[in-house]
Computed example of a mutant assay.
Amino acid sequence: MEHADLVVIGAGQSGLATAALAPRHGFPRILVLEGAEEPGGSWPRYYDSLTLFSPARYSSLPGMRFPGDPDRYPRRDEVVDYLRDYARRLPVGIRTSTTVTSVTRQDGAWSVRAGGGREFTAPAVVAATGDYGTLFVPDIPGRADFGGRVLHAADYRSPDAFAGQRVVVVGGGNSAIQIAAELGPLADTTLATRRPIGWTPQRPLGRDLHWWLRHTRLDIAPIRRLLAKVPVSVLDDGHYRTTLDQYGVDRRGMFSRFTADGVVWPDGTKEEADTVLLATGYRLTFPYLTESGALDTSGAPLHRGGLSTAVPGLGFVGMEFQRSFSSKTLRGVGRDADHLLGRLSQVRS
């Protein structure tokens, strides 16, 4: 059994930012528990060409600038390297290949159990595993009869395996657009969405959107409830719209059901398809907190700004719209972690 002042679950961007800031809030002994073989969270598993929509200057964690040209948009591998380097520099204990199975409160402290019978104790715990571990797969009629492939974006790496195919990409967010644009030159591709795609200029009036968010302070405004209702919109400097048009990637309303060899569109038209790729996102889940008393009946965390309102000494970092527009992003998790740790240090037993 190991004891710490703070146990952080997850060594992705949120967990690493939390671990970096914890000492200044009175947590000298910190343990970070990560189920994967190395730090970095979900980043190493994303598709090869994934590109940030925020410039490098707005994509740093606390205490370490993102290297290179500050105005470029880093690719996945650059982010992975950055997170690995960040983890190496942290003066904290990071236990990889350590999957947390349960977190329970006993005698005023938290007991954190992991696979292999390992146990850790601490007066405070931060859940920083995010929502990229649980895929959201919509229930579409006829899927069991479909003879083609149904993949989630989490299984997508590059367009080469889809060359010459008929592919339907489901989703209208940033990832769906990036993947569809990449598939366009090699495959007959359609975007299926429930509503028209919303486009947001990436560089309005010559400045990156994140510059405007920062200088208007909308980037840090605590308006979570309002922002959660904002429709999904795709950031684009014109590249993605041009690519979709150039290669004939069209948008249609979401198909109603699968058939044995394809899909049925809203107007009743049947069309063959080789692959349906679901860029439908993920769902926030905390299976290790099931017996902690920290979740509501649907499994969602009971919290205010990341601090648990159900049990003492527990917090969350890395949730979408947790406190602001930038929550759950490289540029925002540090602010959320700093806020949470300040409150957590006051209420822990």
Rank of each mutant, 00 (worst) to 15 (best):
A127Q: 03
L52E: 01
F53Y: 09
E2L: 13
T99H: 10
P204Y: 06
Q165T: 14
A4N: 04
S97A: 12
V79Y: 03
L277D: 02
R84H: 15
D338Y: 01
L213R: 03
G115D: 13
T280R: 07
S49C: 04
P44Q: 05
M64E: 01
Y46P: 02
A187I: 06
L244Q: 02
A260T: 14
T99Q: 06
Q178N: 13
M1A: 15
V317F: 06
A20D: 05
Y247R: 09
L209I: 13
Y247F: 15
L52S: 02
D131H: 15
S326K: 06
P91R: 08
R95T: 01
R348Y: 04
A260M: 07
T200S: 10
P222T: 00
P159C: 08
G117M: 07
T134M: 05
P196S: 03
V333M: 04
G133R: 09
S14M: 10
R217C: 04
S256C: 09
D81L: 15
Q322G: 07
L6K: 00
A22V: 07
S326T: 15
D77G: 12
G313L: 03
A187N: 04
M64S: 05
G35N: 02
G173R: 11
V103D: 04
G253H: 04
L186K: 13
R225K: 11
P287F: 06
R72I: 10
G206S: 09
V264Q: 09
A161N: 09
A154F: 03
R331D: 10
S102L: 06
V311W: 00
E37W: 07
V80N: 05
D219H: 03
S42K: 09
Q246H: 12
Q202L: 14
A19M: 09
S97I: 04
L284D: 11
Q346T: 10
V168I: 12
R84L: 10
M1D: 14
M319R: 11
R89F: 07
V100P: 00
H215T: 08
G41W: 07
A300C: 07
F255E: 11
K270P: 14
V80S: 04
A36S: 15
Y82F: 05
S14T: 10
V232R: 05
A294G: 04
